[in-house]
Design a protein around this nucleic acid. Structure first.
Lengths: 233, 233
DNA sequence: GTCAAAGTTTGTGGAAACGCAAACTTGCCT
DNA sequence: AGGCAAGTTTGCGTTTCCACAAACTTTGAC
């Protein structure tokens, strides 16, 4: 069925406690889904019929306010489950998932989630660790939004993404998916104008380079300073 | 052991699917804990040795930023489990829990959480619904902080609390625990000064009455308008 | 290669909300 | 009852950052 290498999954949290046989079993019930950049995997409010494991690429989680403003609470890096509404007793997806870059994901019918959780020891536990981490991240964002200035929030957001999904290159830490000023503003509760101004300054200061939606952090230490103590610097 | 009425628990989410016998079983392993207003149940970073069910009163969840600013992401109403770090695979509590009013809680050693989840069908599921709802609420707060002005955020915060924990009285919807301007500002990412000004205006407009940390909402409809469309009003 | 669409940069004014400060009220403890 | 601590109100100057606007650049489609 699947020519996917089992060992590819073996080290991922939800499967790390399972035997090779169990993993193969789970894999055999999955389907592969390719999602081109910009396409949505599912939308907020849709019936939650499927859950996913992101193999490659990055997924952007979006929500719309009543006024039509878009907010991006977090990004999902490869190797994580997402769309696991059933694990939280939800019938519909609480947010929209959009491919931030071309994505490869495995998908299963949602009813299998319960089965997997019951059948395979550790599957549920490991999944809930992801939920916990996500709750932690969203909660951290609340703190940032509540106490920090825009400059610090933008620096924080870039740091988080660079750490989570940055690729070390010769010149610096490259963020692996395209990221527009607008998107950064939607992550930080700001405007694309303000973000543009900030990035311009940072670029001339040599903290980062940005072109064609690609951002490369040159000076992590400096960015950290901006994130935490712009007032002190 | 416990002269608590089982039926008191029978309708609460984590127990709603259990038999009377199972509930009695769980109750027999619990201890009662009284927490006076202002005291903390546990602190951020503490070893997560115990989980709780809030029977009466309200618990305020607090976190401290690196700069020493306090943030209040949510309040826990009676009937909910809290401190369930184990359910999210955490070894330590991710936040501090403080009694917003005098509280009565049941407590269990954390290791029993896993046992209950394994033994009693529905216990885990129902717990995770609470986690889901909490994730939802924190995420909604991110949206508010990212897109709304202070006035709307404060109105939202009061609405949420009034709906969640308001008691209908002759004059209006009374918030059942003391709430200072400072606390409201820590919930909304604002300052006590700004909150004070807002409440003053609202009081003279007859939207609410506030004295001695007690807030009573007189005109819910008007507060809703302020929450969502202060610009339209 | 051309054109439209999408994204970025930059300027200017203005409003929202903070920071500081000082007076005032209320509740609580001894 | 008095005094202290905690909470509130209000004024004023200042900063941050948004809103509007307009030019510019880049990308991708045909």
């Amino acid at each position: 069925m699947h020519d996917l290498d089992d060992s590819l999954l073996a080290h991922l949290p939800p499967f790390s406690l399972l035997s090779g046989e169990d993993i193969r079993d789970i894999l055999n019930q999955s389907r592969t889904r390719l999602v081109p950049r910009g396409a949505s995997v599912f939308r907020e409010g849709d019936n939650a019929t499927t859950f996913y494991l992101l193999l490659d690429g990055y997924v952007r989680v979006e929500r719309l306010t009543q006024d039509g403003d878009r907010v991006i609470p977090l990004h999902i890096p490869p190797g994580q489950l997402f769309g696991i509404a059933a694990a939280l007793g939800k019938e519909t997806y609480p947010a929209t998932a959009v491919a931030a870059s071309d994505c490869v994901a495995l998908e299963w019918p949602m009813r299998l989630w319960t089965k997997f959780a019951d059948t395979y020891p550790g599957f549920a536990t490991e999944t809930y660790k992801i939920v916990g981490a996500r709750l932690e991240e969203v909660s951290r964002r609340v703190m940032e939004l509540a106490t920090q200035r825009v400059e610090q929030r933008v620096a924080c957001a870039l740091l988080t993404i660079a750490n989570q999904s940055g690729k070390q290159t010769a010149s610096g830490l490259q963020i692996e998916f395209p990221l527009t000023r607008r998107e950064i503003s939607e992550m930080t509760g700001s405007t694309l104008h303000t973000v543009s101004r900030l990035l311009s300054v940072w670029q001339t200061d040599g903290v980062l380079v940005s072109q064609n939606k690609r951002i490369c952090v040159l000076d992590i230490a400096r960015l950290k300073k901006l994130a935490h103590a712009a007032n002190v610097a």
